[in-house]
Nucleic acid binder design. Structure first.
Lengths: 228, 228
DNA sequence: AGGCTTGATATTGTAAACAATAATGGTTGA
DNA sequence: TCAACCATTATTGTTTACAATATCAAGCCT
């Protein structure tokens, strides 16, 4: 019966997924009882999950008021973006190891899925797969610690994009991923690093920190399909 | 009184401080009831603190067995060291902003304290101040997000050094900090970055991942002075 | 004698009841 | 009609007791 940690991980993953897929808007309230019903769990477990997510800056706990999906400030947003850029660009410039054959294969497989999602106009899958591409890259050229750090930054970026994205822009060009993989295959890390810098700057250029949008959202309908 | 978050932060800080100062050896058991007595708190709060610390990889929770100070594996140790090196070296090479006058002043003040601690042979203060120097540097040239990420890595490094340090070595030369500040004052970031790389490599060269030491420690006496 | 089983003890994990606080809505008075 | 106030309701926060599990020690059997 001791699989409570597993269950909590499942709930946390579901919430993170919802954030990643931009279903949970920043500022949304996360009532404990409601979450417990949705995930067929109890308040104690939900409470622990929210506490952990607050540590990842995904959730903000306001004493006496409850848990809310975080609303990163413009300054925090800039810092998160810059930090991610530093890590990824620097790692590509001086990777800990060359890209292995199976590493390239892993990346190619993700890219194939990206192409399929693109063809199917599945924006949600594209966001998820783009993240996976970057994380896999970091794991292959770097290590697991950097991967987990960047994973958190990507999650926070999801909130940032939801809050500050300009209308009518499509972030995350998957064509860049293709070129990136080609450069890495040729072991041209200097050029790959430069491309990664442009890639991330491209994402940032889609943001506008002047607007402070509402986007505070409903919860129940959005999260219903998550209960497994 | 709603200041429970504050109290938990105090307990977490005390535990982190103990880890930083190498008083809490990796592998030490952290019984909830005992901690509650030491900090004049209750199990519920201790439990939340341990949960949060487990997320920072400072504490490992074993289901049904309790909480232990983490014992980073050699591989995890290498990854943590490499990640910290990547962040600090890259940031110095291409800082987000030049070192300001008050930034230099902050660093100089820490260095002065370091010198005092060195004169007083206060090894504990030196460890703490060395960390503060690095974190302040990152905040001045980078941002708060990078600072918090690196703060966690430094904490993990403390565990790593405790576990794998060779005998008769003194890590963390404060003379490097002096030279570093001079180079930064002259805005020679390329050379500062190179020095930082050598500095961190110097720390790593004091480690020996072959030995797997015991070091599992008592708890009560060590933590008694922490209860405020 | 040594290893294994078994019972006792201590520690962790969970649930439920209770208390405290914030949000809500309705009422009253200017 | 609007604003301020109070009562009600809902939600969060804390404590308590209890259940489950692991640890330890003694006794038993081979």
């Amino acid at each position: 019966m001791g699989s409570s940690a597993k269950e909590e991980a499942r709930i946390a993953d579901a919430l993170c997924k919802a954030v990643l897929e931009r279903k949970l808007a920043p500022g949304s309230k996360l009532p404990e009882e409601e979450l417990a019903q949705i995930f067929r769990s109890n308040r104690a477990k939900i409470r622990r999950v929210l506490l952990l997510l607050s540590r990842s800056h995904i959730v903000t706990l306001e004493p006496g008021r409850g848990a809310f999906v975080s609303r990163p400030s413009p300054q925090e947003a800039r810092d998160v973006l810059a930090s991610r850029r530093l890590i990824e660009v620097s790692l590509l410039a001086r990777p800990y190891r060359k890209l292995s054959a199976q590493g390239a294969e892993r990346l190619r497989r993700i890219m194939t899925q990206e192409a399929q999602a693109h063809a199917a106009h599945d924006a949600i899958a594209m966001i998820y797969l783009s993240g996976q591409f970057h994380l896999t890259l970091i794991e292959e050229l770097g290590n697991k610690v950097l991967k987990s750090i960047t994973g958190e930054l990507i999650l926070r970026m999801s909130l940032i994009i939801t809050m500050y994205e300009r209308q009518n822009t499509t972030c995350c060009l998957s064509s860049d991923h293709h070129d990136l993989l080609e450069l890495l295959g040729a072991h041209d890390y200097a050029e790959a690093s430069a491309l990664m810098a442009r890639h991330l700057e491209g994402i940032e250029s889609c943001l506008d920190f002047h607007r402070e949008p509402a986007t505070t959202t409903i919860l129940s309908q959005i999260l219903q399909p998550l209960k497994d």
